[in-house]
């Protein structure tokens, strides 16, 4: 007889559950999705056990349904997350994140002589290679490889 699995995080009536967040990226995800500004109920699970990942993070947000643009902001740091859209305690839709064609205000340009590092302005990058994750600064045209990407 299988032992009943302990619920790791309380159930959600309506909202979004973001699962399979790499544990070390959890708080960056919170900040990129601006979850600290929400007024609805949020449950954050940190260092939870995961068969697939070892340790993972979960975020459950009541009454919040993200636009694809919004959730794509986390695609650089947490490409493997699952979003479960929940209505009346049931998962009604699953979403994955994908790299957008352009990223505004998320990544820092690593060229110190770039205008974006010297003016109060938003950064803007074109994703020129989605497979290997290579970005190109819209302003100074510097190309940044995945391992050199720094968030703002």
């Amino acid at each position: 007889m299988e032992k009943k699995k302990e619920l790791q995080v309380a159930a959600l009536e309506n909202g979004t559950a973001i699962d399979h967040i790499p544990a070390d990226q959890l708080f960056k995800v919170v900040s990129l999705l601006e979850i600290e500004h929400l007024k609805t109920r949020v449950t954050i699970g940190y260092n939870l056990d995961s068969k697939k990942m070892g340790k993972k993070g979960i975020i459950k947000i009541s009454d919040k349904f993200f636009e694809q643009d919004e959730i794509n902001r986390i695609s650089l740091i947490a490409p493997t997350v699952n979003l479960n859209i929940i209505r009346d305690y049931e998962v009604v839709e699953k979403k994955q994140v994908s790299l957008p064609d352009e990223m505004c205000g998320i990544v820092k340009c690593n060229n110190p002589k770039c205008i974006t590092n010297n003016e109060p302005m938003q950064t803007r990058f074109q994703v020129i290679d989605k497979e290997n994750v290579t970005l190109k600064c819209h302003y100074c045209e510097v190309k940044i490889k995945k391992e050199d990407i720094e968030l703002k």
Partner: peptide, 25 residues
């Protein structure tokens, strides 16, 4: 002297910009 300066300038005005050199860009 900053790279991307002319590109940014062209986004904040409707007056045409000619880039006469932006850093090493």
């Amino acid at each position: 002297y900053l790279e991307g300066a002319a590109c940014y300038a062209s986004e904040v005005t409707n007056v045409p910009i000619i880039n006469a050199g932006d850093g090493a860009n």
